[in-house]
Design a protein around this nucleic acid. Sequence first.
DNA 1: TCGCTTCCTGACCGTATGGTCAGCTTTGAG
DNA 2: CTCAAAGCTGACCATACGGTCAGGAAGCGA
Lengths: 210, 210
Amino acid sequence: MSEPERLSRRNAIRLENEQRILSAAEKVFAEAGFGGATMQLIADMAGLPKANLHYYFATKEELYREVVRNIFNIWLHAADSFDNAPGPVEGIGAYIDAKMEISRRQPDGSKVWASEVMHGAPVIQDYLETTLRDWTAGRADLIQRWIDEGKMAPVDPRHLLYMLWATTQHYADFGHQIETLNGGKALSDKQWKAAKDSVKSIILRGIGAI
Amino acid sequence: MSEPERLSRRNAIRLENEQRILSAAEKVFAEAGFGGATMQLIADMAGLPKANLHYYFATKEELYREVVRNIFNIWLHAADSFDNAPGPVEGIGAYIDAKMEISRRQPDGSKVWASEVMHGAPVIQDYLETTLRDWTAGRADLIQRWIDEGKMAPVDPRHLLYMLWATTQHYADFGHQIETLNGGKALSDKQWKAAKDSVKSIILRGIGAI
DNA sequence: TCGCTTCCTGACCGTATGGTCAGCTTTGAG
DNA sequence: CTCAAAGCTGACCATACGGTCAGGAAGCGA
């Protein structure tokens, strides 16, 4: 790293504005979908003129791609919980914790990701075919090893992974439905803990790890 | 019912066209989202002039609302599997089977529903607050009864329901991702069976029903 | 056959949206 | 201090979209 703190005025402005725009874009894309989102609305939410958005991000697609890319990285990072775990209880337990936390803290990101995949992953297909495919294969191997070592029941590793994704992301993607069924109120700290515990206990018991 | 079979030419045409339009709309809304879908594209896919769409459905919103309503009814119908079951193995097992089958046969409907909820359920909020809320409360009671009767472990019925929805619908909503991770090929009959069995065995064992 | 209703559609319209651009201001290296 | 580069923006444009409508075609009860 040959650039220690180049936070000159210029760079600071650039970073600040890009961040504001990306943050606003994530929210708007999550709420309206790619097609329903408008650059004007994103601009308003970011507190910038629309033309300024196009100064930083040439097109709507480019801005969207950047948003999705950010989310994908956060996703992958959560997978660190998986590693260095002695067995499924610790590894999968920590992974569920991490993903539930993401669902709670960054539901917008989760929604954008879900939307992207549901529509056929037009902009991150290459990521799915490379990074995600590799990641999945690696974890499936790890799970298989745990099975071989008798640390859990012989379940299909792939379907277990899908189940982990589905259950955790559901709390973000379908948060509105859950909230409605919760009397219109967001889940409390206690309820989030109950959710986490439910998911963990059912899955860990379901795979014969506890 | 005072109108036995009024399948006069007129009615036949009406039914036929409405069905074509709804079917095309479901696909387009699923692929592009509400905002990204265009009446022109739906019209093309239905093989009708755009103006004809507006003859049957005044606005895009009205067409969309009808699509969502249809899906919701199919959803609710799958819940019949739940009833008249002596215990969780039969009831929840059948429910998973039914919902997995829907995910396989009507993935577009599932996607439209997911999209609708993700965006805050603008058009079916009332359904969530009435029909779905009642349905959920009823099934939660049923599950609680099974718990009280010692037929399964004491899990939170709500979170179990969310888990059932999440895992089964995931195979429709994230079907593209699953397909990509499956080497770009759709799941075969055998793989669908494996998916069903995985979900069922992990959950049923997870709740101590088997 | 008549005449009313339903069905159908090409052409059209107002608007909203993504994107452009000329020209301004601010920054900071030399 | 100079001046080129970077940052900024109001005004503008072309297009695509949802929706309308006048008028014709087809169905059907009497």
